[in-house]
Amino acid sequence: MSSTEQGAVSDDGDRASAFSNTWEPSALEISRRKVRKKQNQRNTLIAIFSTVVVLGTLITLLVTSPGFKSLTDTFFAWAYGVEVLPKIILGFSTNVLLTIIASTCVAIFGMIIALTRTSRSPALLPFRILATAYVDIFRGIPMLLVILLVGFGIPALRISGLTNNVLILGTAAVVITYSAYVAEVLRSGILTVHPSQRAAARSLGLSHFQTLRFVVLPQALRRVTPPLLNDLVSLIKDTGLVSILGVTDAIRAAQIASSRSFNYTPYVMAAIIFLLITIPLTRFTDRTIRRSIEKQNAQGLA
């Protein structure tokens, strides 16, 4: 048996060296390439033709439709849009600020909750119960409700020392809800790290905490980066919900402008500003997911 193995190996070696010599494509291969090139050219032509026909028809139908004039006047009054743009951008800076602060807090709280839920220490049992209840409750309530409860409910308590600032309360509501989502994503990541990795680390003498820090978490975070980026995109959009408390963010600014003129272009401008941030981030997320899948496949082959 071992002799056939060796035979196969040396055979492979010969073939490899034959390949490494200068190689000219055979006549057959050259003719195949010509056919493939022709096929490619034809496919490109078909794709261009089909795109022009379909999109051209749609645009023609839209532009020539009887309502097109009032549609553009109501939603795409660009001159008015440019006029209110500075106010909306100023409002959007609130969304950006809120996103930065909230995502930082969410990362910290989400991690604490995830670590608590995955811990096994008997002393932490009450915290495990609390963390589980927290996640169950705040993943199950619409975020708008949490914003209303925190934003209007807390000032109603009239506790001195507690803030009435709607921006802070709104951020707190976003953090409360998103921590529950992110904790679950992190927890699933921690659970996907194979127990044998833990065993290997522990048998090297690493403590429970060192194992978590150097072996489990780095692998877990790598795996959950794509879903976390998805959550970040959602978070950016959902910061707009705090406008219901009267925070002057991009949406609120657009609302004020549009209620003055009965024209909806400010909303479209706000939408465009959100898209300018969310589309690149979504593309980046897609690329990260694709890369991590490619890496996993490569590992499978090796």
Binding site: S196, A201, R202, L204, G205, S207, F214, Q219
Partner: peptide, 21 residues
């Protein structure tokens, strides 16, 4: 203290269990 004991021992597994990251 199990960590103290394991410091005196080395273990190699069937599935290597190297840290991939």
């Amino acid at each position: 203290k199990s960590d103290q004991v394991r410091r005196k021992l080395g273990m190699v597994f069937q599935a290597f269990n190297l840290f991939p990251h």
